[in-house]
Amino acid sequence: MRYLRLYAYFLRFSFSRAMEFRLDFFFRIGMDALWYVVHLVFFTVLFRHTNVLGSWNFDQMLVFAATLFLVDSLQMTILSNNRWMFPILVNRGDLDYYLVRPVSPLFFVSLREFAANSFLNLLMAFGILVWALMRYPEPIGWGRIVVYAPLVACGVTLFYVFSMLAVIPVFWLHSRDGLRQVFWSLNRFGQRPDGIYKGWIRRILVTMIPMALTASYPVRVLFDQNPLHIALHVVAVTVVSFAVLLMVWRRGLRAYSSASS
């Protein structure tokens, strides 16, 4: 309850800050909207030349694209500003202020800044998802949608875990952004349907570096024969990944040397 009340303060603070820079507020909305358009055009052009890609047809691919937008908008709204600031906090020694507070430093560092402008993109992405599901020619069934929703949350969590694992190395590297570039490179694999990956790359993308689970697997629950098996897999990988994050975070804090970092 205390954490929820604290998060409500974060929201109020973030909205008032976002309105200070009005032009940027709209630029960011436009940027994300353009990202959605670019991806929709990308998949539309591909499907001019094929009926199936990664075992999905165009209607299924639209649901995948919408899920990708939803996961992205959720992470952009809730996490992105915080992840951007994290290396700066460590390198300047400003993390001290978070460590002395009587709340979890990881909670504070990860959720303090809520991107109010991206919140509008979240509504946009949700709208695209509803549209993609409504135009799907066959009935999907509420049972599958009930399983799908928490798996999207798992997808966002996995995105969070691996993006944090990429920036936490600043505790040791003292570089400007840790391994953030590596994360963005790996994230590109998650922006395409998992069905296109084969062999050992596929095994890595659904287990050790589970970028295929952020959007593809939640969508698989809507269309595959065995949704519960997929759901269990995603939940298990999410739990293990989060445990790894906590372990690395604690080790990072031990290596933190305050302002001299």
């Binding site: 030349h49 199936v52 990664g54 590596v182 694999f189 395409r192």
Partner: peptide, 26 residues
Amino acid sequence: WFNAAFGFMSDFGVVFFVWTAMFAES
């Protein structure tokens, strides 16, 4: 070199799988 290698492999790796699937499935 670390960022460059990952960037290059992912840029190329993703399109390799996309287009291999495109040609195979179409």
